[in-house]
Amino acid sequence: AREMGVIAAMRDGFGFIKCVDRDVRMFFHFSEILDGNQLHIADEVEFTVVPDMLSAQRNHAIRIKKLPKGTV
């Protein structure tokens, strides 16, 4: 199932999404941004959540798609 959120932080090559449906900041890597979009803080996005290979306690966001403002 796809989830929605807002870009909360951007770093060098990765960032975090503030999720709508869960009280966490979800890690993502820039390589998972679809359509070659440039994302910025406060952009609204949808994404798929998958378990982190390195840590069973953590998840991360993949297949991130920018949404029109006002969607979330």
Results as ranks from 00 to 15, higher is better:
G70L: 01
F16H: 05
G36C: 07
L34Q: 11
Q38A: 12
I17T: 02
A42K: 07
F27Q: 13
V50S: 12
A56Y: 14
F27C: 09
D43I: 04
V49N: 10
K66V: 06
K65Q: 09
D21P: 04
T48E: 11
K65L: 02
F30W: 03
V24R: 15
M26D: 00
G36W: 01
D43W: 03
F14P: 01
Q57R: 11
I62W: 03
V72S: 06
L39P: 02
F27W: 12
G36S: 07
V49S: 06
F14G: 08
V72H: 02
M53H: 07
A56T: 12
F28S: 06
G70E: 06
G36M: 08
L54F: 12
D43M: 01
K66F: 03
H60T: 13
N37V: 12
V45R: 02
K69I: 09
P68Q: 09
F30Q: 13
T71I: 05
F27D: 01
H29P: 09
M10R: 08
D52P: 06
I41L: 10
R58D: 13
M53W: 10
R58T: 10
D35T: 06
H60E: 09
G36N: 08
D12M: 04
A8W: 08
F27A: 08
A8E: 15
D23T: 03
I33L: 06
I41A: 07
R22G: 06
D35F: 08
A1C: 05
H40I: 06
A61R: 00
T48G: 00
I17C: 04
R25V: 10
L39H: 00
G36E: 08
L39D: 02
G15M: 01
A8F: 06
Q38F: 12
G15Y: 05
M26T: 05
N59A: 14
V24A: 14
M53L: 11
I64H: 03
I7R: 01
A42F: 13
R11E: 14
M4G: 01
R25E: 15
D52Y: 08
F30G: 03
M26G: 05
R63Y: 05
D12N: 08
L39E: 02
N37W: 05
R11C: 15
V24G: 12
R63V: 02
N37Y: 13
R63T: 04
I17R: 01
V24I: 11
E44T: 03
K66D: 00
E32D: 15
D43V: 00
T48Y: 15
H60G: 03
A61C: 12
R22A: 06
V6F: 04
V72D: 08
K66P: 03
F14M: 09
H29D: 14
R58Q: 15
Q38N: 15
V50E: 09
G15C: 02
F30S: 09
K65Y: 02
A42S: 08
D43E: 00
E3R: 09
V24F: 05
Q57T: 11
I64P: 01
Q57C: 09
Q38D: 12
V45P: 00
E3G: 07
P68C: 05
F47C: 02
K18T: 12
F14Y: 09
D43N: 01
I64F: 02
F30D: 08
H60N: 08
K65N: 10
I33G: 00
A1V: 14
V50D: 06
I7D: 02
I64R: 01
D35H: 04
R58M: 11
D21K: 11
K69P: 15
F28C: 01
I64A: 01
E46V: 02
A8H: 13
H40L: 09
V45F: 00
D52I: 04
R11M: 15
S31F: 06
V24K: 15
L67F: 01
I62G: 02
M53N: 12
N59H: 14
I62C: 09
G70A: 05
E44V: 06
A61L: 03
I62T: 14
R63C: 13
A42C: 14
F47V: 00
N37T: 12
I17V: 04
E44C: 05
F16A: 04
T71H: 04
N59C: 15
A42T: 11
P51A: 15
V6D: 13
K65E: 05
I62V: 13
V24M: 09
I41D: 08
I17S: 01
K65T: 07
H29A: 12
M4K: 09
E44A: 04
L39K: 05
M26N: 07
L67H: 04
F14K: 07
S55V: 04
I17E: 00
F30I: 08
G13T: 10
A61G: 03
I7N: 02
A56K: 11
K18R: 13
D52Q: 09
M53Q: 15
I17M: 01
G70Y: 03
M53E: 12
R63P: 01
I7Y: 02
A56R: 13
I62M: 07
M26S: 03
P68Y: 04
G70T: 02
F14I: 07
K69D: 05
V24S: 13
I41G: 01
L54V: 12
E32R: 03
S55G: 10
N59Y: 12
F14R: 03
F16D: 04
E3N: 10
I7A: 02
V72Q: 03
V49D: 00
D21W: 08
P68K: 06
I17F: 00
H29C: 11
G15P: 00
